[in-house]
Amino acid sequence: MSHICHRVLSHCRSSHKLAKLLTCHQFPCSGQIVPRAMSSQTQYQFQTLKVSQVKDYVSQVELNRPEKRNAMNQIFWGEMVECFNQLSADPECRVVVLTGAGPVFTAGLDLSDLNSVVPREDDIARNAMVIRRHVKQMQESFNVIEKCPKPVIAAIHGPCVGGGVDMVTACDIRYCTRDAWFQIKEVDIGIAADLGTLQRFPKVVGNDSLVRELAFTARKLMADEAKQCGLVSLLFPSKESLLAGALETATIIASKSPVAVQGSKVAMVFARDNSVQNSLEQVAMWNQGMLLSEDVIKAVTGQMQKETPVFSKL
């Protein structure tokens, strides 16, 4: 890291450069994130999701079918992919807060839509291939949360059932209200969960026995137990305090270097599914380029000058 220190000191020794740095508003006196022009939300027009920029660089994605308890219908699956692909490329977004409208976070799959996906061919193999394609498309609706380089904070209130568990286990951070509960419901409708719960949940909580119990019995996992096992990291007394807490964390993350934050997410997702040595190689390859970022200079200089750095859009 000596080359980084040399770059920082070179910048700090030059009063001209430092003055230029300050006059360019890279270190605002307020110590707050400099307000940015709000990105156009016209691109985020969905039927089942409501997307808004609630703070600088913080986007809120709200499941928006409260009259249907935010059940996931056929439109939802495609809109999730489109939404998170857009957020991934949006320079005005550095953090996403995922919420649910109404009294229920989500009731999971909209069972009234199941008939529309049942194949009608006579041949079993062709029916199976149709189902496989459909399941893979649905899986991608939550894979995009994990692929999105921006951290995603799930703010869960009330019931989070079936597909909701698949969804939140793909998120980076999970907070919930004290009245929240989780249920791997699929066994009660005669299927194995196939959208990520059985793959991600055990790695999130590190308790294979508990996840198997929940998957086999479909019992509810209440908020206190969810906190105890590590599914969520914080509990809140109300939906309002939950959203405030999630936004507070999101604002802190948004103030950090987006190069560093997004690189950290990519590295942690890779490390979860690979060996330690392969993961060390991945982060070394990643940082051989990212350590040359201007963000390093801004962050370290900010620490030395006791100022809050402001990072360029990414």
Rank of each mutant, 00 (worst) to 15 (best):
H3F: 04
H11N: 06
S14K: 07
K17V: 07
K20L: 07
L22E: 07
Q26G: 13
F27R: 07
S30F: 10
S30A: 13
F46T: 10
Q47C: 12
S52Q: 14
S52K: 11
V58R: 07
L63P: 09
R69L: 06
I75P: 00
E79Y: 01
V81F: 01
C83E: 00
P91N: 01
P91A: 00
T99G: 00
G100D: 01
A107Q: 05
D113I: 00
N115C: 00
D123S: 05
R126Q: 09
V130H: 07
R132K: 11
H134K: 12
K136I: 08
Q137S: 09
E140F: 07
I145N: 08
C148M: 09
P151V: 13
V152G: 09
V152H: 07
G158C: 10
P159Q: 13
V161F: 10
D166A: 14
I173A: 05
R174Y: 08
Y175D: 07
W181A: 08
W181E: 07
W181P: 04
V187G: 08
I191H: 11
A192D: 13
T197R: 14
P202G: 15
G206S: 13
S209M: 14
V211M: 13
A215V: 11
L221G: 11
G230L: 08
G230M: 11
L234Y: 12
P237C: 15
S238G: 14
E240A: 14
G245C: 09
L247A: 08
K256A: 11
K256F: 10
K256M: 14
A260V: 08
V261W: 03
Q262G: 05
K265G: 02
K265A: 02
R272N: 02
Q277R: 03
L280T: 01
Q288K: 06
L291P: 02
L292N: 03
S293A: 07
T301D: 04
T308K: 09
